[in-house]
C-alpha cells in the first residue's frame, strides 16, 4: 500500500516536472523570439554603421546569426542553461551577475510585503468570514476593491508626497540615506540583515525607515488579495459538517474558528500566499521605480529605457523561472499534502 502510494507520488512529481520543463522551454522560446524581433540590428550595434560589408558579414557569422533559427535557439538554450544570459550593454557586466547583485533588494521588499500582507490579511479574512455582513466584512471588501483598482505607482507617489514631502515622517526614496551608502559590506545582500551582522544599528534603523513605505505598499496589495481569498476559504470550511460536530461537542468557538476551520485552510492559503509573493515580484517593477529601490524591478526598467535587450530578457527569464517554481511548489503542495487530491 505505502509502496504504491510512494510510486503514485513519484509519478505525480515526474508528471509535474515534465510539465514545468516544457513550460520553461516555451518560456525560453518566447524570450528567444522576442530577442529576434527587436528592430535593432544586433550586428550593426556591434560593428557600427560605417563598417564595410565584409566586416559586417564576418561579425554576423561570429555572432552565429547566419545559422538556421532552430540552431540559434539551440545555442541560446545552451547559453541560458549554463547561466550565460549575455552581457549588459548598460553596465558592461554579465547579466546574471547584475541580477544576482540587485535581486536581494527585491527579495527584501517582497518578503517584508508578503509578511505584512499575511499577518494582517489572513486574520481580516477570517473575521470577515465569521462576521459576514458586519462592518469588518465591509471594510475587507472595500480594501479588496481598492487593491484591485488603485494604481500601485500612484499610491506610492501619494505616500511619498504626504509622508515624506509634506509631513516629513519618513525618509525619501532609496534604500538608505546617501550618508550611509556603501558602508556595510554586503554578505546576504539584505540591508537589514547585513547591517545587523555588522552591528551598525543606526544603519539598520535607517534602512528600516526606508523600507516601511514601499513594503507597506506591496503589503497592502498582498493583504487585499489574501483577505479576499481567506474569506472565501473560511466560508467554505465553516459550512462543513465537522464544524457543527465540533460546536455540538462544546469546543470553544475561537478554537473552532482559528483551529479547526483555519487549520483546514492551510494548504490553499499557503498556495495563495506563494502566488501573492509572485505577484509582488511583478508589483516591485513599478514600486522600485517610484522609490528608486535598487532591485530587479528598477534594473529591468533602466534596461528597458536604454534598449538593453540582454538585461531585459535575462530579467524576464529569471522572474519567469521564479514564477514557474512558485506554481510548481503550490501544485506539488496540493498533490502531496491534500489527501483528497491524491
Amino acid at each position: 500500500m505505502s509502496k504504491e502510494r510512494l510510486l503514485n507520488h513519484l509519478y505525480a512529481l515526474g508528471r509535474l516536472l515534465a510539465v514545468v520543463l516544457t513550460t520553461f522551454l516555451g518560456l525560453l522560446l518566447v524570450t528567444f523570439l522576442i530577442g529576434r524581433v527587436v528592430p535593432i540590428d544586433p550586428v550593426l550595434a556591434v560593428v557600427g554603421d560605417k563598417a564595410s560589408p565584409e566586416v559586417y558579414e564576418r561579425a554576423r557569422i561570429a555572432m552565429g546569426l547566419h545559422l538556421p533559427l532552430w540552431k540559434q535557439f539551440f545555442i541560446y538554450l545552451q547559453n541560458v542553461l549554463s547561466g550565460n544570459l549575455g552581457t549588459s550593454v548598460l553596465t558592461a557586466r554579465p547579466v546574471l551577475e547584475d541580477i544576482l547583485r540587485v535581486f536581494p533588494a527585491t527579495i527584501e521588499l517582497a518578503v517584508t510585503g508578503t509578511f505584512l500582507g499575511v499577518i494582517i490579511g489572513v486574520p481580516l479574512g477570517v473575521l470577515s468570514a465569521v462576521y459576514r455582513g458586519s462592518i469588518i466584512d465591509h471594510i475587507t471588501r472595500v480594501i479588496g476593491l481598492f487593491g484591485y483598482s488603485l494604481p500601485i505607482f500612484w499610491l506610492g507617489l501619494m505616500g511619498l508626497m504626504i509622508l515624506y514631502a509634506n509631513l516629513d515622517l519618513l525618509p525619501g526614496p532609496g534604500r538608505v540615506d546617501m550618508f550611509y551608502e556603501d558602508i556595510v559590506t554586503p554578505v546576504t545582500g539584505l540591508m537589514l540583515v547585513d547591517s545587523l551582522l555588522a552591528k551598525e544599528y543606526d544603519i539598520f534603523k535607517n534602512a528600516l525607515s526606508h523600507l516601511i513605505l514601499p513594503a507597506s505598499l506591496l503589503g497592502y496589495y498582498s493583504m487585499a488579495y489574501l483577505s479576499r481569498m481567506t474569506r472565501s476559504f473560511m466560508i467554505e470550511q465553516l459550512r462543513q459538517e465537522y464544524i457543527i460536530t465540533a460546536r455540538v461537542k462544546g469546543v470553544a468557538e475561537w478554537k473552532v474558528v482559528w483551529g479547526h476551520a483555519l487549520g483546514n485552510c492551510a494548504i490553499p492559503l499557503i498556495t495563495v500566499i506563494a502566488l501573492s509573493f509572485g505577484g509582488l515580484l511583478e508589483g516591485s517593477v513599478l514600486t522600485e521605480t517610484v522609490f528608486a529601490w535598487p532591485g530587479l524591478g528598477l534594473y529591468l526598467t533602466n534596461s528597458l529605457l536604454n534598449a538593453d535587450m540582454n538585461s531585459v530578457l535575462g530579467s524576464t527569464i529569471v522572474v519567469g523561472a521564479i514564477f514557474l517554481s512558485i506554481n510548481l511548489f503550490s501544485d506539488f503542495l496540493y498533490k502531496v499534502m491534500d489527501p483528497r487530491a491524491r
Partner: peptide, 9 residues
Amino acid sequence: AFPKLILAL
C-alpha cells in the same frame, strides 16, 4: 507562467 506586466514589458 509569465507575470503579465513583465511579459508586456
